[in-house]
Amino acid sequence: MIDIKNLHKDFGDLKVLKNIDLHIDKGERVVIIGPSGSGKSTLLRCMNMLEVPTSGKIIFEGTDLTDNKTDLDKVRCKMGMVFQQFNLFPHKTILENMTLAPKYHKMMSDAEAKETAMKLLTRIGLADKADVYPSTLSGGQKQRVAIVRALAMGPDVMLFDEPTSALDPEMVGEVLELIGELADDGMTMAIVTHEMGFAKEVGTRVLFMDEGVIAEENEPKAFFENPQNPRLQDFLSKVL
C-alpha cells in the first residue's frame, strides 16, 4: 500500500531521515516509536507529502507521490491524517468541520455529507455537539472529532502524529479507544506515539527510530520483550 524507498530528508545541514526503506501492507498497523528528534514525525509527514523529501520515492497505491505531476490533493483524500494539536477549524462548527472537505471535493451532496458526518459523530457519542464550535469541546473530544473528520473522507490509510501527546492524561484513554476500534475494523494505519502499552496492543509491527534511521523493527511482542538494539534497550528501560 505504501512503499518508501531510499527516503532522505534534510532540514538545511541537519539530516533528519537517512535512507529509509519501509513497506506498509494493507491492513497493517505500524507503530513508530523513538526519542524526540529521531525523525519519526518527519517520516510520517513525508507519507502524505506534508514534508517534501529531499530524495527518495514514496509510492502509495501505485502512485509515486514524489513525482511533480502527481495530484497530491487527490491522493491526500485517501490518506487521513490526525495531528498532535487536533487542528480543528475554530471558525466552523463541528458538523462544518466534518463536511467541509467532502463537500469541497464534491464527493457527496450536502445532504449525504451531513448524514455521513452525523453517523460518525453518533458513533463517537458527540452527535449533540454537531452545531457547536470546537472551542467548547474538551481535548479528548476535539481529537476524536479530528479522527472522524479524517474518516469522513473514506481514507484507505490513517496517519496519526502523536495523537495523544497534547491531551490531559484522563483524556488519553477515550482517544486510544477510538483508534483501537478503527484497528478492529481493519483500517491500515501508521501511528507515531509515546504510548508503549498502546503500541503493544494495537500495532501489528513496531518500528524504533533513532537518529534518522529505522534502528529496529519487529512484531510487538518480540519488540518489547526481546529488544536487540542497545539504543532501543536503553530507550525502553527509560520509558517503560
Binding site: D73, G80, N87, L88, F89, L100, A101, Y104, H105, A150
Partner: peptide
C-alpha cells in the same frame, strides 16, 4: 493563523488556494 490549520486543510486534500480561502 497557526500553520497547523494550513496543514489540516492540505491533509484533507484542499488545494493551497482552497485552504487559504476556506480555512
Amino acid at each position: 493563523v497557526d500553520y497547523g490549520q494550513t496543514e489540516a486543510g492540505r491533509s484533507l486534500g484542499l488545494s493551497q488556494i482552497g485552504t487559504l480561502r476556506l480555512i
